[in-house]
Amino acid sequence: MLNIDINNISMIYETKDSKVNALHNINLEINSGEFVSIIGPSGCGKSTLINIIAGIIKPTKGFIKVGDRKVENPNSDISVVFQDYSLFPWMTAYDNLHFAIKNTNKNLTEKEIKEKALKHLEIIGLSKFSNSFPKELSGGMTQKLAISRMFALDSKIFLLDEPFGALDALNRIHMQDLLIYLWRSGNNNQTILYITHDVDESIFLSDRIVVMTPSPGKIKEIIEIPFKRPRNRKELTGSKEYLSLRNHILSLLTEDMKVSLNKQEEQMRKYYD
């Protein structure tokens, strides 16, 4: 169990003739074992933030601490699932698991690695597909495998960047349940940071929701989700509390949209005048 301390992070992308302020003074503390969602329109720097926490890119300013360790490079304490391409397309389902387990747990024997990989395939019901390549699996199966690989790594922190964004609604619900099931059934409750643009998904999954706004990307509001776990999707979505939360988040998000739409309108008017 590890907590994440996001300390005054700013990220500026410089191109030849412009500066893009992707993130501006982000401060956030994520407790160990907590499930936090980040929601916001595209361009608010969500993915940049995940990449910084994972140590893949270096921030312009500020630092990340995971437990007592300052994040400077990718480390197997933290594992990441991206919307697509998290798996290696040249490895079969089994090889993907085997490779990841082998490289993150250096002290396991070959037999233990094998057992672990097969067990994880079984949990997600993909035993039959152990010799299939990712291209031979459906989108849902691929993400199942990516999620299962993440849990197989025994990392303390999971970062998920819109993992179910490309799935249809039904598959997405199924995957959310699987994610929560795997997370809660593990013996060490991992800390999860989850990026999404789906309001319902964020409420159903998280303990807290961070709403971000674009240009420059910054935190607008942090919302506590009061619902106890295990959550029942049907009861939850029918409740008044849920609806008011949902409306609140939606209005936060659309506010920005209105602002940016107004800006666009102004610019257009200027242009035509």
Partner: peptide
Amino acid sequence: DSKIINSAKTLGLSDKTMLTKI
């Protein structure tokens, strides 16, 4: 794809594994 490279980086691979397996 940079996502594949990033995904590999998060596994904390050694340089040799990175070259030969990714």
